[in-house]
Write a protein that binds this DNA or RNA. Structure first.
Lengths: 163, 163
DNA sequence: CAGATATCGTTGATATTGTCAATAGTTTCG
DNA sequence: CGAAACTATTGACAATATCAACGATATCTG
């Protein structure tokens, strides 16, 4: 069915107590590994849910950004999603060929393309969002609302580091 | 330099208040997206740190698992890391060709290969672990010890769902 | 202002990773 | 025993990542 990428990396097992018996040296306690595995699961669920609409997490994220008032350029999209600019080209190409977004050269900087969702794009984004939301709900159903909020706040610190 | 994968997916922006002004519709508040972005950052840092030792997050994770007393089979490794079994074949091939791990057919089930680190593998794992640890430290330095512990606990719930 | 320097999007080449079906060897189950 | 299920492996193919080079702008510096 669906699978996913995972990339992990461990940590010391110093504080011996946290490990059940004397089992694995690290991975299960490792933040980076857990991050990777949780992401893989979340991503798989999201992709599965979005497939109905001909989207993947990637293209969905781009589409959603283009519905924003901020009118991001391709470079900004690339930075935000941590993608190579050339990958954004492909993603926008695809969405554009389906009539979901448009490229408009930024009047303020004619090198840059501002990507903006069409009406069709906005409509699709809306329904896709609902699918994504319920897929997420499944993945995160083991967490209480409070826990979700805490998790979101902590992840935001990692995802958008200060210095 | 390094870049990384990202895959994201958003959420409703219902609770209007959480958004600064009237900016982005969702992504910054979306758990799945934050998970993806945080993972991308963590992964990039880990890969960079491990490159010194000729490892990536992937191969490092496999190597580390093989230092475990649990003596995982390739199938178990694949499941744990959420990889296709064929990818584990490649990873183990590589590590084995470098003399870091060995394949031993499980006496209890001669279909299965138990993968176990050699002495050299254990040594490398030890030093690589130190590199990974300090890379992680950089990524997570914005979190207090308490926050890290909380985050770990919450992520574990997502990474290893109950039912 | 001119020329050097940097940036944005794009293309294309290349490597890495993901996905899937098919297979031989084993085990398990009826 | 024979059928069905499972393990590792291979190979083919699709998707993604990575990087260098380019034309079109913009910005900077003297």
């Amino acid at each position: 069915m669906d699978s996913a990428i995972i990339d992990a990396m461990p940590k010391p097992a110093d504080t011996v107590a946290s490990n059940g018996g004397s089992r694995a040296p690290a991975l299960t306690d490792d933040l980076s590994f857990l991050l990777a595995r949780a992401n893989a699961i979340s991503l798989a669920a999201g992709n599965a849910a979005l497939a109905t609409h001909g989207l993947k997490a990637r293209s969905y994220a781009v589409l959603l950004l283009t519905t924003d008032d901020a009118r991001p350029s391709q470079r900004e999209i690339a930075e935000f999603l941590r993608l190579d600019p050339s990958q954004v080209v492909s993603l926008v190409d695809d969405l554009q060929s389906r009539g979901l977004v448009e490229r408009r050269t930024d009047p303020a900087d004619r090198r840059a393309n501002v990507v903006v969702a069409t009406d069709a794009g906005r409509q699709l984004a809306a329904v896709a969002r609902e699918s994504a939301r319920s897929a997420e709900e499944q993945v995160h159903r083991q967490l209480t609302p409070n826990e979700r909020q805490t998790l979101t706040a902590l992840l935001r610190i990692l995802a958008f580091p200060e210095p």
